[in-house]
Design a protein around this nucleic acid. Sequence first.
DNA 1: TTTATTTACGCAACCGTTTTCGCTGTTTTA
DNA 2: TAAAACAGCGAAAACGGTTGCGTAAATAAA
Lengths: 337, 337
Amino acid sequence: MDKLTIKTLAKELQLSVSTISKALRDSHEISAATKKKVLALAEQLNYTPNPYASSLRKRKSKTIGVVIPEVVNSFFSQAINGIESVAKEKSYHVLIYLTHENFENEKAILKDFESGRVDGVLLSVSRETTSCNHIAELISKEVPVVFFDRVFNEVETVKVITDDFESAYTAASHLIKKGCKNPYFVSIQGNLNIITNRTEGFKKALSEHGIKFDSNKIINCSTSPKHNYDTLFKKLSSAKKPDGILCSIENLSIIIYQVCEDLKIKIPKDLQLISFSNLDTASFLNPPLTTITQPAYEIGKTAAGILVKALEKKNFVMPDENIVIPSVLTIRKSAKN
Amino acid sequence: MDKLTIKTLAKELQLSVSTISKALRDSHEISAATKKKVLALAEQLNYTPNPYASSLRKRKSKTIGVVIPEVVNSFFSQAINGIESVAKEKSYHVLIYLTHENFENEKAILKDFESGRVDGVLLSVSRETTSCNHIAELISKEVPVVFFDRVFNEVETVKVITDDFESAYTAASHLIKKGCKNPYFVSIQGNLNIITNRTEGFKKALSEHGIKFDSNKIINCSTSPKHNYDTLFKKLSSAKKPDGILCSIENLSIIIYQVCEDLKIKIPKDLQLISFSNLDTASFLNPPLTTITQPAYEIGKTAAGILVKALEKKNFVMPDENIVIPSVLTIRKSAKN
DNA sequence: TTTATTTACGCAACCGTTTTCGCTGTTTTA
DNA sequence: TAAAACAGCGAAAACGGTTGCGTAAATAAA
């Protein structure tokens, strides 16, 4: 059996390939009668156009690349869900790439995109990303990039983010108002904008309530669960141990629960805990976890929407603009109310 | 600035395009000296070959399609992680599609794959999938499909699954041995193989322990959280309410916690609970959830490995074979020990 | 009726690589 | 020394659509 191509249809209907092509694309150059015949035969033979031939000629792939640090993560999986919702609606295809928080991986992925594999990119940078040359390079090759959540301010493009500063400020203020004398901030190393903003929010809350900030109040974790456990264990069993924690990373909150259990630290009596988290089990943890929930789905959906809208225009420009979708603080028993 | 193609390199080096192409692909026809020159210039000009031109000519896309019901789900996101690990190693690209548990969506996605967009497919069927014609059709077009987790036995191909029957049997037996007189099975409608197998395992445990099974012992849920809450609420407040539940779906276990809280049902005193679940917060739920954890990462990795290995051969055949990776039962406080 | 316009379609170039085949000059074998 | 083998490269035809342009017939305007 021959490959089923446009030529097959053309031969069958005694028409030229260009007529078939135009008919399938509903061109005004083709009569309604011819279109009907072509569509009917295409349907009957179950013809599906070769996307690569089309992409080659049109220099459009109808594909967007999504680059994220990890996928086993409530935030990112919800974001993907949001992205997929617009991709499906606008008939775009979604290629997923994971950096595993590694800068070299991220560079390699974006480098590949310079080939024209994708029409646009949705990017949430890795922890270890220290410069944005690779991103600027990609954009200079006419591949638009929209950031979401973890952004790089130096790059002039759309950034869909949440109000990390305000959220951290509000949460830390809550801890202090509920009696914390010694609040800590559990976070990760690196220079992620989200971390910086949250840290600043945390600092502001301390300063407004007359608590002296020193860098000791920040507990930096890594990507190694074992190492993080040890770090937290040491901090939480030290003399000047915290009586409140604002946790910046969802995964770390679970480790804090573990450490507290092992150290017989009672939450919230001995230690109040608030975490940035999109876990939908938060209400049923022991005790229920007070969370700052980020609008992950909306962030993904918004970022994808903006990217796709830009791609549909002929001469798009990506404004250097922040779109902020607020997070929501939900008080549960891990912090006093 | 011109597009940077093979022609650019050819002109620059006074060589033919075919020589460049062969040099880049390290053909034996080209001398080492020429190869070195070509590679050097390609590097210098930052040349990246157009993947669509290549795919068109080679009839290979180096892309696999992953079709899953949802992504906001520990099992599937871990599976994606496993898939990505082999994709990255073998330089494949990963297109993700969500069916949202809808048969029509699934059909449309697989239909699109008939275009040759992907070299192979990893599929976990939706709840509502009632026939496998669309899958057989795709396979007949030479696009190999490997199932994972949710499979269709009628389709002759590789299926990477876990031991649902044995796991359910073991878990239900555990409940009964620990005193449950009236165990229930919380599940979903449809004819998913995993559900069927788990149900059979549940039934066998009952029958072996002299507990009469009737279809009343199965609580069928839907995709609507609200509806599921109501269904479970009614069952758990009825006269003949269960004293043990084997929950087949991760998401439903959270709803069970909620219903129990609202009805003041104590877990595990009044109701023992075991759930199929890949939540890594299971240990910190209140009470900690006894789980049957599926090897999601390994399932994804194995399925992808088999698919890619087949794609590398010229004349692959997909054996009609089940690969079973066992789940593990972890007893925590939601069930007695 | 003549001219201008529109309609509907075909021709052929093109998108950027890959690959077959053929050619030349050099090296090996008999 | 002639024939055979080989190494290194180029020409050109694919791969399967898309699109600008040309053209004949049909219609509208003058």
